[in-house]
Design a binder for these strands. Sequence first.
DNA 1: GCGACTTTGTTCAGGAGTTCACAAGCGGTT
DNA 2: AACCGCTTGTGAACTCCTGAACAAAGTCGC
Lengths: 228, 228
Amino acid sequence: MSESRPRIVPEATVARLAVYLRVLAGLADGGRSHVSSGELASAAGVNPAGLRKDLSYLGPCGVRGVGYSINGLRDRLTEVLGGERSRPCVLVGIGRLGSALADYSGFASRGFQFAGLLDSDPRSVGSEVGGLTVRPVEDLEAVVAETRASIGVITTPAEVAQSVCDRLVAAGVRSILNFAPVALTVPAGVDVRKVDLSVELQVLAFLDQQRDGSAPVVAALRATGGAR
Amino acid sequence: MSESRPRIVPEATVARLAVYLRVLAGLADGGRSHVSSGELASAAGVNPAGLRKDLSYLGPCGVRGVGYSINGLRDRLTEVLGGERSRPCVLVGIGRLGSALADYSGFASRGFQFAGLLDSDPRSVGSEVGGLTVRPVEDLEAVVAETRASIGVITTPAEVAQSVCDRLVAAGVRSILNFAPVALTVPAGVDVRKVDLSVELQVLAFLDQQRDGSAPVVAALRATGGAR
DNA sequence: GCGACTTTGTTCAGGAGTTCACAAGCGGTT
DNA sequence: AACCGCTTGTGAACTCCTGAACAAAGTCGC
């Protein structure tokens, strides 16, 4: 049943597919059976044509004149995004942010379950967070092997993030979500995604400052009439 | 001393400038006085040429044959990114994630201080988080006015995020960082940045599945020899 | 059974961002 | 004082992504 079309899916599209999937989940409760691309796009905050282009990477999955079957599209997206099987994750660094993530219901509801929590602080080790007992970071390799985790989440301080990453990779983890403010270096074949919270705030501060027009660079920019 | 060149700074560049600034802060402790673009780029995880292009938007700030003055560049970046003045932020939704953010030392160390915490749950209201007392969400407009906050952070459930956003905007907040899994609609002149944690995990799951080669779409892709 | 309307899937053009490669400029050295 | 090596800054090609227009296809009504 595999398609003959050898399409490659851009990473930007993959991120949007995940958004569409969540919107569909919310729509399924409404009792409707079909959605149009325009409706979905507006709910997801994207362009309708772009949404259709994104979905076209999966092959034809809509019906012309009608729209997309909500359940059908949801199943297809789930399949493509790899949400069928539950993927065990390990989380290293049970500080404030790590604890919040371990408890975060948004993960569990989407098939992601933390199967192991690790920390180096003896005061954290042994405590229970989100139904799991925190284990010492020395057990990292053992926990990865036990849980067969394929995704590792790093919420440690920046100083130890790289060494934790190296150990995760050596233990067989090939996908890493990094919250520590450092650029991790990994061998080829390992994927890293970085979430940098303070960078987000700093970008907002820049935009704020830009609006105020107090920065020299932007003052010049304003003078050209290019501001909007 | 303002430059005559009316350059516009791409948003992707702004995000990287924030990363450079953090790397520089770590480098300043080392006792060195200058860095080369190659060194900085490797620490920040980007291309050296791209880094130079990014910095060129600020006008010439390096010395040929020597590199960039660590302190000089740090000051320039701080100025451009708007980190001079401390920008007060309000945080709405003091759940697990919200509490973690309110405490997050990474924000305070970069000049971002939460000046107001709001929640709708009576059990949260009145409690102290990160040195601040949580106030009822009814006080939102008053808190924004008191603190003159220009940045709002939303960590509420998805259902109420849009209404909270509307109230923030009406109260004068023009920069919003959204952790709720919905696409917020705002009037022109307001900037929104979205952090979607479950999307990040889902992208990693996709890449994982892609490596396994078990997805039909990707099986076809592999067959063409395009895998890396 | 046929026509018109609706909505998808695709093609095409436009723009933004990234990478490579080279000339210009500065410091140190002989 | 002139040369040489090193590093920045920038111009150009390239890739990727996004946004708009058009044809194919299926459904509903008559």
